[in-house]
C-alpha cells in the first residue's frame, strides 16, 4: 500500500513541483506577517531574508564543496591500498 502511494505521487512529480513552488511563495508571505523579536543582527529586520540566505548558502555549498572535491579531495577508492 505504502509502495503504491509513493509510486502514485512519483508519477505526478510535475504537479508536486507546483505545490512546492506554491509553498515557497507561502513561506515568504508568512514572513511578512510573522511577529519579530528584538533583532540579533540586520538580517532579522528584512522580510524574506532567510529565503535569500537559504538559497545562497545552498548554492555556495554545492559549488565550493563540489569544487574542492573535484579538484583536490577526489581519489580512487583503493587510494590507501596502492
Amino acid at each position: 500500500m505504502m509502495a503504491k502511494l509513493i509510486t502514485y505521487l512519483r508519477d505526478r512529480a510535475h504537479i508536486l513541483k507546483y505545490v512546492f513552488f506554491a509553498y515557497l511563495l507561502f513561506a515568504i508571505v508568512f514572513d511578512y506577517f510573522a511577529e519579530r523579536h528584538v533583532p540579533h543582527f540586520f538580517g532579522d529586520t528584512i522580510i524574506g531574508f532567510w529565503s535569500i540566505f537559504g538559497t545562497a548558502v545552498c548554492l555556495a555549498m554545492v559549488v565550493i564543496f563540489k569544487g574542492l572535491y573535484n579538484n583536490w579531495l577526489k581519489q580512487d577508492e583503493d587510494y590507501y591500498d596502492k
Binding site: 512546492f20 513561506a27 508568512f30 524574506g48 540566505f53
Partner: peptide, 19 residues
C-alpha cells in the same frame, strides 16, 4: 514563535529549491 517558524520554513524550503 511565529518568527522562528517563518525562519525555519524559509530556510528549509529554499534549501529544497537549491537542491
Amino acid at each position: 514563535t511565529s518568527y522562528h517558524l517563518s525562519e525555519t520554513l524559509q530556510l528549509l524550503g529554499f534549501t529544497g529549491f537549491g537542491f
